[in-house]
Write a protein that binds this DNA or RNA. Structure first.
Length: 476
RNA sequence: GGCGCUGUACCCAAGUGGUAAGGGGCAGGUCUGCAAAACCUUUAUUCAUCGGUUCGAAUCCGAUCGGCGCCUCCA
């Protein structure tokens, strides 16, 4: 069973064939080249941004889990209207300004347990490659200059519009296509290079000074890192038009070869059923949510748990539900830990574990069906839980289960990766109290036992009396 | 107006021709000194509505109604 993913360009679910030449196993393929449109570092990224980045992270992790090697780049857009404006308002250089928000962005990625990727190119460090592309487009007669800016001539690139089905679109009357204050021959031509304005940073080129148009940044970084056709290009749906359409036009017009094999677009996150916006009061950054006491792990779970091609309606209630799902996983791990010192061996465990891996792959291979994968995973927990209740899981068995959980967590990143669950400083004291309570119960001093239970409860520690003894956990 | 996503139980959410996964919640049960927690069991003759194709449809086709997004910077 091959891994299949929906391709925005062809509008079909297609097998992923890295390098374009079919091989027998994932390991035989060349590394999967992936480019993800990253953030513009002008402010804190919001949770909608992180939905896309988590969906990219899931793709990357799953490919590795399946045995593919990956070579993944995510850019940092560190020059555009917003970053320039922001730096001017704060009275700092563009570089200082973007450095601050780039740092914050990386911190947030780490908080959400999003894996670092192999390359993080910056637009400002890729200007040489942009000039190369400008030259090639110029040589091919598709570039024109007007008032110091350079434009892409859509009429000379017949393939223009194939990603966004532009020929099928009709322009709503009243929508201005000329909103960026630059003169163009055709309203749909787009700026490759923008003439410098007063007090704005600029770079020297053979075509004169100026700064990059937004779209050419990505084309240049992809060329610089990967050189040729890449396997996967990802981004949010809003980037289909015009950003990705323009990337295709530039790169293919410049180099005459296929730009990208698979386009993957993550649908938008809604908040309380509507588009997130500051004016609507439903705009959240990651840090807003953390300040309200929600855990990064729950947020990761929630953002990950729905299929990438469907809009995800984010609610605070949803985080709570995600948190409860995670608690089921945590309780499972606690129960598993309790089996550590039991002896014996249940041959059925190994079968259940390998069945989980097989079913998981079979499910998720179908266009990254994460919800289905979660279903398979919770089924597995249920099966093992039942065996634990029947006393049919030994210490050795539990180790096999743990190994399986670790494998799956390479994809999920929320089973064990719990940065917010550090070693409890009060562990010793709590253990002592718990033991005192066990003694009290033995001696039928129930008043004292209840007193200890209440004391710990007031500190947020929950005791669980099981038939094998008492264990405790922190209330979330 | 065009394009795209979408409508599955109280909430979240899989399932694209073979008879409704999973999580939360609710309700029972087990365990317990009592509780709590945990675990177990149960919870949609039905998939927005209407019609069609088919031996068979949530899944395909047509119509209708509804939610959301994009078409302007945007993950």
């Amino acid at each position: 069973m091959p891994l299949k993913i929906y391709n925005t360009l062809t509008r079909k679910v297609e097998e992923l064939i890295p390098g374009g030449i079919r091989k027998n196993t994932p390991e035989e393929y060349p590394p999967v080249t992936i480019y993800s449109c990253g953030p513009t570092v002008y402010s804190y990224a919001h949770i909608g941004n992180f939905r896309t980045f988590i969906s990219n992270d899931f793709l990357r992790r799953y490919l590795k889990f399946r045995g593919f090697r990956v070579n993944h780049a995510m850019n940092i857009t560190d020059v555009d209207d917003k970053t320039i404006k922001g730096s001017q308002q704060e009275g700092v250089t563009l570089a200082e300004y973007t450095k601050k928000y780039t740092g914050i962005f990386y911190e947030d990625l780490k908080t959400l347990n999003i894996e670092p990727v192999e390359h993080n190119p910056k637009a400002t460090e890729s200007v040489d490659e942009m000039i190369n592309i400008l030259k090639r487009i110029d040589e091919n007669g598709i570039l024109y200059e007007k008032d110091g800016s350079l434009y892409f001539n859509i009429s000379k690139f017949p393939d223009y519009g194939k990603l966004s089905l532009l020929d099928k679109r009709e322009i709503k009357s009243g929508v201005s296509f000329d909103a960026d204050e630059y003169e163009k021959e055709d309203v749909r031509d787009f700026a490759l290079w923008k003439a410098p304005k007063a007090n704005e940073p600029f770079w020297e080129t053979p075509y004169g000074p100026g700064r990059p148009g937004w779209h050419i940044e990505c084309s240049a970084m992809i060329r610089k890192i990967f050189g040729t056709t890449i396997d996967i290009h990802t981004g949010g749906v809003d980037l289909v038009f015009p950003h990705h359409e323009n990337e295709i036009a530039q790169s293919e017009a410049a180099y005459g070869e296929k730009f990208v094999r698979h386009w993957i677009h993550t649908e938008h996150l809604l908040v309380d059923g509507a588009k997130m916006s500051k004016s609507a009061g439903n705009f959240y950054t990651l840090r807003d949510l953390l300040a309200r006491g929600y855990s990064p792990r729950s947020i990761r779970y929630l953002l990950m748990s729905a299929h990438y091609k469907k809009q995800l309606n984010f609610t605070l209630e949803g985080i709570t539900q995600a948190d409860q799902a995670l608690e089921r996983i945590d309780n499972f791990i606690l129960r598993l830990n309790d089996r550590k010192n039991t002896s014996g061996e249940n041959p059925g465990i190994e079968n259940i574990c390998s069945a989980l891996i097989h079913e998981f792959i079979e499910t998720v291979d179908n266009d990254l069906n994460i919800s289905g994968g979660l279903g398979v995973f919770f089924d597995f927990i249920h099966k093992i839980n039942t065996l634990i209740s029947e006393d049919k899981v030994s210490g050795r068995d539990s180790e096999i289960v743990f190994e399986t959980l670790k494998k799956i967590d390479h994809v999920f990143g929320f089973i064990f990766a719990v940065s917010d669950e550090t070693e409890d400083a009060d562990r010793e004291r709590i253990d002592l109290l718990v033991n005192e309570r066990i003694e009290a119960k033995k001696n039928k001093q129930f008043a004292r036992a209840d007193e200890i239970r209440e004391l710990l409860k007031s500190e947020g520690v929950i005791l669980e009396d099981t038939k094998d003894g008492t264990r405790w956990k922190r209330k979330k």
